[in-house]
Nucleic acid binder design. Structure first.
Length: 705
DNA sequence: GAGCACTGC
């Protein structure tokens, strides 16, 4: 997918980059052209001022709208002036693709290739040269993980947190940790970069007055409001799109809708209207864009519209920040967004449609003015706009804190409630999450992290899955292969894509792979068959599987397997140390010989394979269903539910009533199982349990509150 | 009998 076009190289420069790669001496023509472009950026005239301020302050807050060049230029200025003192600069991004494409762009501007002086580091992918890389673009999640291993982040002399205004849990947490770290590491420079409006919040947080404002480079956008509120927002959006099409000049339309369902409805309504267009009317092409759409269909929205044709893109919030589409001149904004909210009392995540914030509305409008002047039609009144919140509620206030608290404990922060958050989560969020971690034995009664908790924190998973994995192995080591597959699959959404109007249901597809009375086992069976399939592409096509996400499940599985084997290695080392404590003299020798042995094995490249065989982690053809069912009952017992007389279920831990999701294999099963484990609760108009496995009462452990 | 926005390790 094409992400943040302004920051990523366009097709021409990509081609040219290949020639740079081939020619080690560099493409001087391109380099000179890029240097000229750099000097024409509006940020260039602030270069010296920026450097002076950053040099004389430990902490700087930089405000600048998207497109002003701050992400690509400022790190280069710092290196050109030697402010990094020959050590590495980290620049964090909330999204993987942004980190990669920006690194590519900057490498080009610095006449080098990615992985040399400029690198990137994201999950599953890294291009870094230990000795050479001076500028590292990374996801904020990667830097956060690094703080667990090295709390003083000693690789870096400057850390830049970009897009801080998005207020993701990761960047919020990083900013708080950096504030603490700035006391201990006076040599570390910290730069917070944010969109204009929220900078003062960050400056106040750091008790700093060093705010630098940069002007953007956006084209003018005319904003129109509705005169009266609309009863039906889809209807209003439909009329607005048609009005633009018939009355406005050329240019594509981007319409924000809340979800897949509304997008499909709107698509149908528009198609019906287009049927009735007069023959001489200009053509209107409909494109849709949402995360569950397979990438080859997403790409259609990025294709340039043909001469004499107008494109309308019906999109979820994905087009607000995650992707940028060229050529948009008109934005239709109903002012609504679907958002997740966690209820710590009911232990339930809810998806709610809520009004957008003023800053979101501004960001959406900005999508119309990236190449030329544009127009934004807001389907709400000016009065309504004035009543909107300034910003969306930060993610940390809407989340389950279990992961955050376990990470903080693993870093060594004992007093999590006394920690300085930018926005403090609610007391109930702390209480519930600490209790939850104690239930899993990740924290002890005094809220100190246990050995089990430390191992859990090493795994890139929500605590409950990390717990499940370790408990499953302890219960029955033979089950680990299936458990690894099941957990990996539970991390990936949208495994299937069934086009609207297809004569097959998701359930029909699941039945082809059914194994036991379990959605999890059925999907494991499918994953293992995919893994063994010679022609993976046709396997996916035949079974309506989203191949990209299937690949992702295998990637996750590989990574989890590696982490898991690491944990086992650490355990055996620790045991060895303890066993040899009595004979201190031998200890060193033994450790050395073990180290040597591991090194030798590594050299042979056999370690992983050997460990895989030893611990049965590799993907197996044979799946033992009984073993898995018993493991999931023990490892995921906080996600157990019991059947009621009326056919509904009660979630045992929270005592909440719920229904089996219609996409589950168990939706039709009769009689309904007495006890089940579910993976997920979703609350829409009803509360549903998704991904279900029937368990036996004998395996069940009571965890009610 | 009915339906999940987006991102990250």
């Amino acid at each position: 997918m094409e992400i943040e076009k302004s920051q990523s190289p366009n097709k021409n420069t990509l081609k040219q980059q290949v020639s740079v790669d081939k020619n080690k001496n560099g493409n001087l023509g391109l380099f000179n052209k890029l240097q000229k472009e750099r000097k024409n950026l509006p940020i260039f005239k602030h270069r010296q001022g920026l450097l002076d301020k950053i040099r004389s302050n430990q902490i700087s807050v930089i405000a600048g709208e998207t497109g002003c060049g701050k992400t690509t230029q400022i790190p280069q200025y710092l290196i050109e002036d030697g402010l990094n003192k020959n050590r590495m600069i980290a620049v964090t991004q909330p999204r993987r693709v942004a980190a990669i494409t920006i690194a590519q762009r900057v490498a080009q501007e610095m006449n080098t290739t990615v992985g040399n002086k400029v690198g990137y580091s994201v999950r599953f992918e890294e291009a870094v040269d230990k000795n050479n890389t001076k500028l590292l673009y990374m996801t904020d999640g990667m830097l956060l993980r690094e703080t667990i291993v090295d709390p003083s982040l000693s690789r870096f002399s400057i850390i830049v947190i970009d897009e801080a205004h998005e207020r993701t849990v990761n960047s919020d947490l990083l900013i708080s940790l950096l504030k603490q770290l700035s006391e201990r590491r006076k040599d570390l420079k910290i730069i917070i970069m944010s969109a204009t409006i929220e900078t003062e919040k960050f400056a106040n947080f750091f008790e700093s007055e060093n705010i630098i404002y940069l002007e953007g480079r956006c084209h003018p956008i005319e904003v129109f409001y509705s005169k009266k509120p609309h009863a039906d927002y889809l209807d209003a959006a439909l009329n607005t799109i048609l009005q633009i099409h018939f009355e406005e000049q050329d240019g594509d339309i981007l319409c924000f809708l809340v979800g897949q369902e509304d997008i499909e409805d709107m698509q149908q309504m528009l198609e019906e209207k287009i049927e009735l267009f007069p023959k001489e009317a200009k053509k209107l092409k409909i494109c849709t864009l949402y995360a569950a759409l397979p990438s080859h269909l997403q790409l259609l929205a990025f294709e340039k519209s043909l001469e004499g044709e107008r494109k309308v893109i019906l999109s979820t919030n994905i087009a607000e920040t995650s992707v940028t589409i060229d050529g948009i001149k008109y934005v239709v904004d109903p002012g609504l967004v679907k958002t997740r909210k966690y209820n710590p009392n009911k232990l339930i995540e809810m998806l709610l449609v809520v009004p957008v914030s003023k800053s979101s509305a501004m960001q959406r409008a900005g999508r119309a003015g990236r190449q030329s002047a544009g127009k934004c039609f807001r389907l709400y009144t000016k009065y309504t706009h004035d009543t909107l919140a300034e910003f969306m509620l930060p993610e940390i206030l809407r989340s389950n804190l279990s992961t955050v608290i376990l990470q903080m404990k693993a870093i060594g922060i004992k007093d999590v409630k006394g920690f300085q958050f930018i926005d403090r989560p609610h007391e109930d969020q702390f209480i519930e999450s600490i209790e939850n971690l104690q239930l899993m034995n990740a924290l002890d009664a005094n809220e100190n992290i246990t050995l089990h908790g430390k191992e859990m924190a090493e795994l890139p998973l929500e605590p409950i899955y990390a717990h499940f994995m370790l408990v499953a192995f302890a219960t029955n080591p033979n089950s680990i292969s299936v458990v690894l597959s099941a957990i990996s699959l539970m991390q990936v959404e949208n495994l299937f894509f069934i086009p609207k109007g297809a004569k097959i249901s998701l359930l029909d597809v699941l039945l082809r792979f059914q194994l036991g009375n379990s959605d999890q086992l059925t999907k494991v069976n499918m994953l293992h068959q995919y893994y063994l399939a010679k022609n993976k592409k046709s396997f996916c096509k035949e079974n309506f599987i989203n191949q990209k996400n299937m690949k992702k499940a295998l990637e996750v599985r590989q990574q989890l397997e590696n982490y898991f084997l690491d944990i086992l290695k650490k355990r055996s080392k620790k045991n060895q140390k303890q066993n040899t404590k009595a004979s201190q003299n031998q200890a060193n020798a033994l450790q050395q010989s073990e180290e040597q042995q591991i090194q030798e094995e590594l050299a042979k490249g056999n370690t992983l394979k050997k460990l895989q065989e030893e611990h049965k982690t590799a993907i197996q053809q044979e799946i033992n269903t009984e073993e898995f069912v018993s493991c999931i009952a023990k490892g995921l017992s906080v996600k157990a539910a019991k059947l009621n007389n009326d056919g509904t279920y009660t979630i045992i831990r929270s005592n909440i009533q719920a229904y089996i999701h219609p996409e589950s294999l168990l939706f039709y099963s009769k009689p309904k199982p007495e006890y089940i484990i579910f993976n997920e609760v979703v609350s829409t108009i009803k509360t549903y349990l998704r991904d279900i496995t029937e368990i036996q009462f004998s395996d069940f452990k009571d965890i009610s509150k």
